[in-house]
Every structure is written in structure tokens, then in C-alpha cells.
């Protein structure tokens, strides 16, 4: 055990693998020393575990009606009560974790690389390419995200896939800005010149040498954006444009509960708590990650 920790905290790592492990260990340690970040990690882990093991965690099936037990208040049998079709709300919230996680991961996987590439190309080449790409980025940045997402979903048709595409289309510009700013700081540094003199193509330089250096600040930003993505997705679900019934998407569940809000408050409120907790978790984690990975921005916001 002590040997493993020595290996993880070595001042002069002997291999690339060890260097990475040392860095991850240091980041993890710094995160765990920050109570809010540790709470964020815990919440995100709970989300992932819940999504992975939903069938074992949920006491009832998420779909399927039980009209004899409709609109029951929270109790020992049904921790969050039941909805208008007698479905156990806790079980639906548990299964809903899968949908939320899917949306968040897919949006990040689509939007972050697009933004990274646009920003790195823009910063690396400069000149008119930079002006055109950044003009486009600024244009998207100064447009209302939610409204654009709404309009895209209206055109593509309601559904969870289209909601994900619409959110991703509106989510990439901040990553392009970050990647460009990072690229500009080391575009003229010697290691880039060295690679270029070895005959590497621009594409190779960007992919192998520029992009990896932009990753850590992008990860920070993506984590901070997660809360916003979850809220937009839930908003689309609430308006009936995201996941369609009977899928247990949290926003759509709130929308179903809207008709009962005055008498059966739990139908609409319970899924909302899930959204809040998960969004807060990503906020805490993102804040903590920023303090660790990107100290120059710390305390600025």
C-alpha cells in the first residue's frame, strides 16, 4: 500500500503512465480536500451508479399502470408517492437518471470536440480563418440558447434524439472560445516550432500537440455547463419536446404533475429535487475542478 502511494506521489515519474497517474492522484487529492467538490463527486457517482443499476435499485417497474394505486402520497411503500397512472415516482426518478446521464454525455461528446476543433483551428491558423470562425462563434454566443434549441426541436420534431442534437448545436461556442484562447498562448512556442520543423502537417500538430493541451480547461467548462444542459433538457421535456411518454424523463414527469400541483404536489415536485441535486452536483464538481486545473480563473466567479 505504502509502495503504491510512493509510486503515485513520485517527484520524478519513470514512465508516461506513472506521470499520468501522479497527476490524476494529485487532482483527486486536491478535489477531495474541497468539501463542496467532494460532495459534487459523490452526487455524480450516485447518479452514475443509479443509472447503471436502476433495475436493482428501483422497487417497482418504471412503466406499466396500477390504477388502483394512483396519486398516493409519499409513504413507506412509495417513498415519493405515485403518479396519475399509479406508477411509483421513486422508481421513475431512478430510471430517469439513465436518460439524464445519456443526454449529458451525448451533448458533451458532440459539442466539446466540435468546439475544441473550431477553436484550435482558429487559433492555430489565425488570419482570415480565425476571423471567420470566431465571427461565427461570437454570433452563436450572442444568441439565446434555449430559444434556438426550441426552434431546432420544432423543426426536427419532438423526441430525445432531436433534443440532444438541438442542445449540442447551441452548446459548442464556449468551447471554441476557450480552445482558441489556449491555442494562442502556445501557438508560437518552441515545441510547436520543433514539431513543425520535423515536417509534421498542420493537421497533425493540431490533433496531436494543440488539442491535448486545451483539454483540461475544456473539461472544467463542460462540467460547469452540465447543469445548464440538464436544465435545458428538462425544459424541453417539460414543454413536451424532449423525451416522450412513457419515458421517465424528469422534465416530462414534472409536466405531467402540473395538472395535480394544487392537490397532489408530490407528482411534480419530486422529479424536480432530482434535477436540482444532480445539477448542483455538477456545479460543485465543476467549481472544484476549476480551482484545481485552472487556478488563474479561481475566485473570479
Amino acid at each position: 500500500m505504502a509502495g503504491a502511494i510512493d509510486w503515485l506521489t513520485a517527484d520524478s515519474p519513470a514512465s508516461r503512465l506513472q506521470a499520468r497517474a501522479v497527476r490524476i492522484w494529485a487532482i483527486g487529492g486536491a478535489l477531495m480536500r474541497n468539501p463542496l467538490a467532494a460532495l459534487g463527486i459523490a452526487i455524480v457517482l450516485v447518479l452514475i451508479v443509479t443509472a447503471a443499476f436502476a433495475p436493482w435499485i428501483a422497487p417497482y417497474p418504471p412503466i406499466g399502470q396500477d390504477l388502483g394505486n394512483r396519486l398516493l402520497p409519499p409513504s413507506a411503500m412509495h417513498w415519493m408517492g405515485t403518479d396519475e397512472l399509479g406508477r411509483d415516482i421513486f422508481s421513475r426518478v431512478v430510471y430517469g437518471a439513465r436518460i439524464t446521464l445519456l443526454i449529458v454525455i451525448l451533448v458533451a461528446v458532440i459539442a466539446a470536440p466540435v468546439g475544441l476543433i473550431v477553436g484550435a483551428v482558429s487559433g492555430y491558423f489565425g488570419g482570415w480563418i480565425d476571423r471567420v470562425l470566431m465571427g461565427l462563434t461570437d454570433m452563436f454566443l450572442s444568441m439565446p440558447k434555449l430559444i434556438l434549441a426550441l426552434a431546432f426541436v420544432a423543426a426536427l420534431g419532438p423526441g430525445i434524439e432531436n433534443a440532444i442534437i438541438a442542445i449540442a448545436i447551441t452548446a459548442w461556442p464556449p468551447y471554441a472560445r476557450i480552445a482558441r484562447a489556449e491555442t494562442l498562448t502556445f501557438r508560437n512556442s518552441e515545441f510547436i516550432d520543433a514539431v513543425r520543423l520535423q515536417g509534421a502537417s498542420s493537421g497533425r500538430i493540431i490533433v496531436r500537440h494543440v488539442l491535448p493541451l486545451c483539454v483540461s480547461s475544456t473539461i472544467v467548462r463542460v462540467t460547469l455547463d452540465m447543469a445548464g444542459i440538464i436544465l435545458i433538457a428538462a425544459g424541453l421535456g417539460f414543454l413536451g419536446l424532449g423525451a416522450q411518454p412513457p419515458l421517465p424523463e424528469w422534465g416530462a414527469m414534472i409536466s405531467r404533475g402540473r395538472s395535480f400541483i394544487l392537490d397532489q404536489w408530490w407528482v411534480a415536485t419530486m422529479p424536480g429535487f432530482a434535477i436540482i441535486v444532480v445539477s448542483l452536483g455538477f456545479c460543485f464538481l465543476g467549481d472544484g475542478l476549476r480551482d484545481v486545473l485552472d487556478p488563474k480563473q479561481g475566485g473570479k466567479s
Binding site: A227, G228, L231, A234, G235, F238, G251, I254, G257, R258, I261, L262, D263, W265, A268, T269, G272, I275, I276, S279, L280, C283, F284
Partner: peptide, 22 residues
Amino acid sequence: GLAGYSVPAFWLGLVGLAVFYA
């Protein structure tokens, strides 16, 4: 302030109606 980033507005509206109206 963080709550402002994490609470869905439509949910807060519904809860507001349930508490302060109903």
C-alpha cells in the same frame, strides 16, 4: 447563487404556485 444555476425555473414556478397560491 449556485441554486440559480441548478433549479429549473418551471419547477420553481409550480412550487411557488402550490405554496403561495394554493
